Simulated scan of single mutants.
Amino acid sequence: MDQNLSLYKVFYTVANTGNISKAAAELYISQPAISKSIRKLEQNLEVTLFSRNSRGVHLTEEGEVLYDYVQKAFYSLQLGEMQLKKINELGIGHLRIGVSTTLCKYVLLDYLKDFIAAHPHIRITIECQSTNHTLQLLKENKIDLGLIGKPERLHHIPFETLGEIEDIFVSTNSYLENLALRTDSKEDILRTAALMLMDKENITRQYIDDYLAFHHIENSNVLEVSAMDLLIEFTKIGLGVACVIRQFVEKELQEGTLVEIPLPAPIHKREIGFVHLADTQTNPVIQEFIDFCKKNA
């Protein structure tokens, strides 16, 4: 583009106002300067852009063609300015989140989808780790925010809840029927079944181990799995009884694909939510994301 951008700004303003004096007032320059800019642009383009009469100015046919393009260009510039303003208002525009693969799939993804649509300028990176690793990354300032199941001790780390989750044991009817034939016993299912649990580094496993120990439930046939997705799928094909989060298998329970195992006492519900160390005033996007998720929880 050979023309000075200021000439197009004058052209755009005159076209919108239809009056040189109004355009001069809007741009805070003199009327002669407006007229001079229009003449210069017309000379450079070798066309007449405005027809003039006593009531003001009107775009010529050539002026209409140019106006369509100039209008789109200035609209794009305005959008760019708005995006920059959002970035400035929300801090650096980058959010580093730590989360387990389970909570990422079943909880975080839905929030991210809507948040990114509303804030496309914010760059987001995800570290999929266990709760313990997420807390360690937070302490090392390698992430800004962690989505975790609330542990017993947080050592003064702020925790903002998103709600509760409930651990349950599930299986298929066919597995339970076969188990009854094999054991020929009325012993508790959790003691005789192939018991599928998350690995010992997972905070859910630690929570369930405490529950089993408290109720004196021992099982020597334990299969450890690193992801809840696999637990659910293994259970659906009849490998055993698994401990999963109720909210993540509601569809299977409703359809009857999985059935809930009765327990001697319900497992206490746990909170899930966000932890962060950074001052949200230093990086306002942290609090922006937390507030967005809590509002849509």
Rank of each mutant, 00 (worst) to 15 (best):
L190S: 07
T282W: 13
N221R: 14
N178H: 05
Y8A: 11
F169K: 06
G256I: 13
F274K: 06
L253S: 11
Y175C: 01
L108Y: 08
I143L: 03
D291N: 14
S130H: 10
I92Q: 07
P120T: 09
A180S: 15
Y111P: 07
T257P: 00
L197V: 03
T131V: 00
K294E: 01
I34D: 05
L108H: 12
K86S: 14
V170C: 14
P266D: 14
G63R: 04
H215V: 04
E64F: 12
H119Y: 05
N283A: 04
C128Y: 12
Y111F: 15
T282D: 14
S171R: 03
I20G: 04
N219L: 05
E201F: 12
T131Q: 02
V107E: 15
L84D: 15
R205W: 03
Y175G: 01
E64Q: 14
N16C: 10
I267G: 08
I168E: 06
G63D: 08
A265F: 03
I237R: 04
E224V: 13
G149Q: 06
L77C: 05
E166N: 14
T161G: 13
S185R: 12
E252V: 03
F115V: 00
K269R: 15
H268E: 15
F248R: 09
E61T: 14
V57S: 12
D110K: 07
S37E: 13
G93A: 10
L239S: 05
A242L: 02
L190Y: 03
Q43N: 15
K9D: 12
L258Q: 11
